[in-house]
Design a protein around this nucleic acid. Structure first.
Length: 883
RNA sequence: GGGCGUUUAGCUCAGCUGGUAGAGCGCCUCCCUUACAAGGAGGAUGUCGGGAGUUCGAGCCUCUCAACGCCCACCA
């Protein structure tokens, strides 16, 4: 015999304490730990590793919640489930933070030296990586901390070296001079996708270059006058008649007088500017290509700091100046020199460093690259072969577009924090060796560059599961992973690269599904960012509303199309209110469990309401399984909300109050209440893990598992299907609703119990007799009298309702106004007539009858019959009222 | 320039394979009915952006126009 201490269950759900307590319970049971030797089928997810520099934001909260839902659902559905947590060393971001801290001490990284600096950064990273993952704990994340990884740890480092060497040996990694996006502030090259473009107002300066040894000049338009010192040619379009005679001649660079040729190249757009273009191969990617075609040697005039070089090509007054100062100075000099023809204001796009927003300086330099095209092949075919799919599907196109136009990937970064490139140079001969280890530390020094952060995170599914040791039990059991959950913003940075490396090094896609969710935005639809000050801190929301409230709200806002999600603080009231509802409904059940036995439900003595709720539960379970399997997470939340609140609480619990007062029904009702609650908690658990576990722990159930999170997830069961009763219950709802409607329409006080008369026959009359108790209680009815159709004299001075083919009469002398009752009935009649009219229109259309499915035609006809009967009944009512 | 998305109730948005529109919030009425006022009961509200087409039937499919948003590429 079970008892529940009700005093221990307050009427308002205490999320904070409950969540803390429950997470501790899971941890103490080591419940998130996966077993690679298990016989169960595997289900695995690797977390998109948050930056060590990061703090939990709403995007993490959504991403983490979705993963946790999938993981918890599969864990309960019989899979050996592994969710791998970890963090990313975030090369530039982390180095920036540590450098900033140093600056506050008045130091730079160079004061410390590389070794000391990296050491210091490790200390910082170690301190912070637990902090972001601990914040994920506040989310209820059921990841396996015993398998936590870091993109710079030994295992990841080994994988990185292995991959680098293999790709190098295959000729897919090469070192070469190329124009890269150089960030003068970060002092490093960055990749194309780390560069953002911003529209800026600027000028097009038209500068005149005089011809050598003859009168005349050619005028070029440029947005970067400071680069004239690096010019190696003036290019015009070969078809441009204006300049036809000038091609092949020589001009002098104003201010310095250096001589350069006029060349012809298709690249030049005749209609832009003056149609003549200055070529600066060292500082512009397109110019570099043109220069290469014409065998022109680049001249460097801007250094890595973004300052003008001190060299003979640069005008002495400009040497050493910052590039923007140099621009002003150069324009001034040109003006004095009469070389400046005019200034045309324009708006153009300027590349910016994604990390620090510094204007990018295209710079010709020696960097390491990965040849992507051969690697992309398998990643492209994966889609056609059906080995990889995106949810929602529209992202496939995006992914394929990028993959098929892929460019080589600049992987070297001139930083100190990261995986150092495993290339070694002989101290005297300069000979280069690429190897996992330094072949001879006496005589070889390692390349000083490190690799792009995304190089190591691109190996994440491989490296976290033990690759390159393919005999590792985790790798054998859990690779490839099941699904990758992330936002669309890192499809190119990360997802695409993981797919490429998955195919290259394991021959398989690292996951078969990429589930892409929307981005979190503020209530105005703007991206959340610290600089805008519009962020909502998930931890703050958890403190205020509770973790499960946060999870439920976020989940409910997910759409199948993966739309972005606008949130505001108040939206989380939705989840909090639902959590409170769950808490209180459970509280009601527990309060009413006195004398409960642990016997199974007696199916022989179920009431119509019992059968209805079991049927509804069963259908809900079916839907939930389908929804989660198909990544319809938002619908999962809505379905559960609707079932629990509108079916279980609003109707079944209210009906149970009646049945619990009936000694014959009490025990079985308790069992049904408890059973449905137990099953519902299981269904809700993946989305709202804490509250469900907390309640479940209190329920006096016979339990196979100690924890709800390890218990079986409900599925559809034929045994619980009660179609007929489910339909009959609709009759009950109709009846009660119409009676409530009448009460409200005529302002009948709740305290006044009504007496009603029913005109009915056959099956319907039987049902009425079955559900009398429900009607009496839920519609506050005193007595029910069954009368013959002919005894209808009481209709005068009564309100009435039609349910099915039956008439319910509510005699209300003095309480009702006949005219308003007539009006009320006429309104209903009008609705019915409207519906009937349109349905008749269909049925009378021979084409509809010929083309529509037979079922639909029959359904429509049946509906018309129903409507006609109701119409007739209402018309009779109105007639008798009028008398 | 190329691609994608959005436009549905006052607000925020659902609506899967076409069968006469839904939720939450807000609003109006009533109710502290012994789980819950973070609650209960009842109610009002939409020519589904405009136009055309396909279909027996269109919020959903096709075309077109419009507005807003995002991504990619980038001409000095």
């Amino acid at each position: 015999m079970a008892t529940v201490d009700i005093d221990s269950i307050p009427a308002v759900y205490d999320a904070k304490n409950t969540e803390e307590e429950i997470y501790k319970l899971w941890e103490s049971e080591d419940a998130f730990k996966a077993d690679s030797s298990s016989q169960k089928p595997p289900y695995s997810i690797v977390i998109p590793p948050p930056n060590v520099t990061g703090v939990l934001h709403m995007g993490h909260a959504l991403d983490g919640t979705l993963q946790d839902i999938l993981v918890r659902y599969h864990r309960m559905s019989g899979y050996e489930t592994l969710w791998v947590p970890g963090t990313d060393h975030a090369g530039i971001a982390t180095q920036n933070v540590v450098e900033k801290n140093l600056r506050m001490e008045g130091k730079t990284r160079f004061d410390l030296g590389r070794e000391k600096f990296v050491e210091k950064t490790w200390v910082w990273a170690n301190e912070h990586k637990s902090s972001i993952l601990n914040q994920f704990k506040r989310l209820g994340a059921s990841f396996d901390r015993s398998r936590e990884r870091f993109t710079l740890d030994k295992g990841c480092s080994d994988a990185v070296k292995e991959v680098f060497v293999r790709l190098y040996e295959k000729g897919l990694i090469y070192k070469g001079a190329y124009i890269v996006n150089w960030c003068p502030r970060c002092q490093s090259a960055i990749s194309d996708i780390e560069t953002d473009y911003e529209t800026e107002k600027s000028n097009l300066w038209e500068i005149s270059y005089p011809l050598k040894d003859e009168p005349g000049a050619i005028v070029v338009a440029t947005t970067r006058p400071e680069t004239i010192y690096g010019d190696v040619a003036i290019a015009v379009n070969p078809t441009d008649y204006k300049y036809k005679d000038l091609v092949g001649k020589t001009v002098c660079i104003p201010l310095t007088g250096r001589e350069i040729p006029i060349i012809a190249d298709d690249y030049v757009d005749k209609s832009f500017g003056t149609g003549a273009l200055k070529i600066t191969p060292a500082h512009d990617p397109n110019d570099y290509e043109v220069g290469k075609r014409h065998g022109l040697k680049p001249i460097w005039v801007i250094d890595e700091q973004g300052k003008m070089k001190t060299c003979e090509e640069v005008h002495p007054d400009v040497q050493g100046l910052d590039r923007f100062e140099a621009r002003e100075k150069t324009v001034g000099l040109l003006k004095l020199n009469n070389s400046l023809i005019r200034i045309v204001p324009i708006e153009h796009n300027v590349g910016k460093c994604q990390r620090c927003n510094t204007t990018i300086e295209p710079l010709l330099s020696e960097q390491w690259f990965v040849k992507m095209e051969p690697l992309a092949k398998a990643a492209i075919e994966a889609i056609d072969k059906g080995e990889l799919r995106f949810v929602p599907e529209r992202w496939t196109k995006n992914y394929l577009g990028w993959m098929t136009n892929i460019r080589d990937w600049c992987i070297s970064r001139q930083l100190w924090w990261g995986h150092q490139i495993p290339a070694y140079y002989h101290k005297t001969t300069g000979e280069m060796v690429v190897a996992k280890e330094n072949p001879d530390p006496e005589n070889y020094v390692q390349d000083s560059d490190v690799m792009d952060t995304w190089f190591s995170s691109g190996l994440w599914p491989l490296s976290t599961l033990g690759w390159p040791n393919t005999e590792n039990p985790d790798f054998k059991k859990f690779y490839p992973t099941s699904v990758l959950v992330t936002g669309f913003d890192i499809i190119f940075f990360w997802v695409a690269r993981m797919i490429v490396s998955g195919y290259e090094f394991s021959g398989k896609a690292p996951f078969s599904t990429v589930y892409i969710h929307g981005l979190i935005r503020d209530e105005l639809g703007q991206k959340m960012s610290k600089s805008k000050g519009n962020t909502i801190d998930p931890v703050g929301i958890i403190d205020k509303y509770g973790c499960d409230a946060l999870r439920f709200t976020l989940t409910s806002l997910c759409t199948y199309g993966g739309q972005d999600i606008k949130i505001s603080d108040e939206r989380f009231e939705y989840g909090r209110n639902f959590a409170n509802k769950i808490w209180n409904a459970s509280r009601f059940v527990m309060i009413n469990l006195d004398g409960v036995d642990n016997k199974p439900i007696d199916f022989g003595s179920l009431t119509i309401a019992d059968k209805w709720i079991l049927d509804k539960l069963n259908k809900t379970a079916k839907e939930i399984n389908e929804n989660i399997e198909n990544y319809r997470i938002g619908e999962t939340a809505h379905t559960l909300y609707e079932f629990f609140w509108n079916s279980y609480c609003d109707w079944y619990v209210e009906i149970a109050k009646i049945q619990l007062n009936d000694e014959k029904l009490k025990a079985n009702t308790q069992r049904v209440l408890l059973y449905v609650l137990d099953q519902t908690l299981r269904l809700l658990h993946p989305i709202m893990p804490h509250i469900t576990e907390a309640i479940w722990q209190k329920l006096p159930l016979q339990k196979d598992e100690k924890l709800l999170m390890k218990s079986k997830f409900p599925t559809y069961s034929e045994k619980l299907s009660f179609e007929t009763e489910a339909r009959e219950m609709e009759f009950v709802f109709e009846t009660i609703k119409s009676l409530r409607n009448v009460r409200q329409a005529f302002n009948i006080p709740v305290s006044l119990k009504m007496n009603i008369e029913i005109i009915s026959e056959g099956k319907e009359e039987e049902i009425f007799k079955d559900i009398e108790a429900y009607i009496k209680r839920l519609a506050r009815v005193e007595g029910i009298k069954y009368i013959d159709a002919k005894e209808g004299e009481g209709i005068k001075q009564s309100a009435s309702a039609i349910v099915g083919n039956s008439k319910i009469i509510i005699p209300l002398k003095d309480l009702i106004d006949i005219n308003s009752e007539i009006e009320r009935q006429n309104k209903k009649l009008e609705k019915i007539l409207n519906e009937k009219k349109s349905l008749l229109g269909r049925v009378n259309n021979p084409k509809f009858v010929a083309n529509a499915p037979v079922e639909l035609v029959n359904q429509t006809k049946e509906r018309i019959e129903e409507l006609e009967q109701t119409q007739k009944a209402i018309e009779e009512l109105v007639e008798s009222l009028k008398i």
